[in-house]
Simulated assay, not measured.
Amino acid sequence: MLGKEALQNPVHREARIHVIGMEPEGLSTEDLRFSGLFSRCSLLVGGDRQLKTLTGPLPPDIERLTIRGKMEPIIDRLRPFQEQSSSEVAVILASGDPLYYGIGSTLIRAIGKESLAFYPAPTLVQRAFSLLGLPWEQSTVISFHRPDSPEEIPHTGLGNLLAFYTDGSDGPRKVLLAIEKDPFLKKRLNEFTVLENIGLDGQTIRLFTPEKLDLLRETPFAPLNVVVVTLNPSD
C-alpha cells in the first residue's frame, strides 16, 4: 500500500523514483506518509547523514547507495526505474526541500520529472529564520555549498536580509570573505549569525557584529550550519 500522500497524487502513483526530503532529526520508515514506499523500496539512495538518520524496518534485500560527490553512478543505477513496470520503487533521501537548492534539479535534468515524485520537508534556511524570529519573504537565499557556487554575492534583487547554505565547517568564513571582498556589502554589514546543528543536540546560534569578526574567523563551526546576514539599508 502506498503512503497516504502518494495515494492522493496521481503523479506520485505513476512515479517509480521517490525523492523524500528529511529534517535533521531524521525520518522513520514507519512514518504513515511514506511507509508504503519504504515497504516496496528495492533501492535506497542518500547522503551519509540521511542514511544514518533513517530508522525503522526496510526490506531485507534492499540495495543501498551512498551519494559521495559525483552523481553519474547514482543516475545510471536509477535509470532502470524509468521503465520498470513492477511495484518496486527507488527512494532517494534528501535534505529539506529537494527542489530548493537540492538534488532535485540534477535528477530532473538527468532523468526527467515524469519518473520522479518529490516530498519536501522544511528547509534549514526556513528553520533558521524561525529560530531567529525573522520574517523572510523579502530575504535573498544564496548557496555556497555546491561546486558551482559563486565566489561573489550578486547585487541584483539584493535586500537587507541574506541567508547562505554553506559547504561545511569553513562555510561561515567563506561567506564572510565574500562580503569583505565587496565594498558595497562590507560597509552595510550589520549582523552575521551562524546557526549550527539546527534540530540536533548541540544546536547553537552565534551572533557576530562587525566589531567581533576576528572572533568569527577563529571560531570552529559544526559542519551543519546556515548563515544569516542582516545589512544596513543602502544610502
Rank of each mutant, 00 (worst) to 15 (best):
T123P: 11
D170I: 01
Q126L: 03
D148I: 01
A128H: 06
S115P: 04
E137V: 01
E114W: 06
S139A: 15
E137K: 10
L124N: 13
D167E: 15
P147T: 09
K174G: 04
S139N: 13
L116P: 14
P147K: 07
G171W: 06
E152L: 04
F144D: 03
D182R: 06
S115A: 15
R173S: 12
P120F: 02
R188Q: 12
R146Q: 15
L134T: 04
R127H: 09
K187F: 00
N160D: 15
P154Y: 00
R146L: 12
I111R: 11
P172I: 03
N160W: 00
L161H: 04
E114S: 14
G112D: 01
F164R: 06
N160H: 09
V175G: 08
L132A: 05
A178T: 03
L116F: 04
T123M: 05
R188K: 09
I142L: 15
E137H: 15
L189Q: 09
F184G: 09
F164P: 10
K187R: 14
I111Q: 10
F144Q: 07
I179S: 06
E152S: 14
Y119H: 13
L177F: 08
R188G: 04
G168R: 00
Q138N: 13
Y165R: 02
P183F: 04
G133L: 08
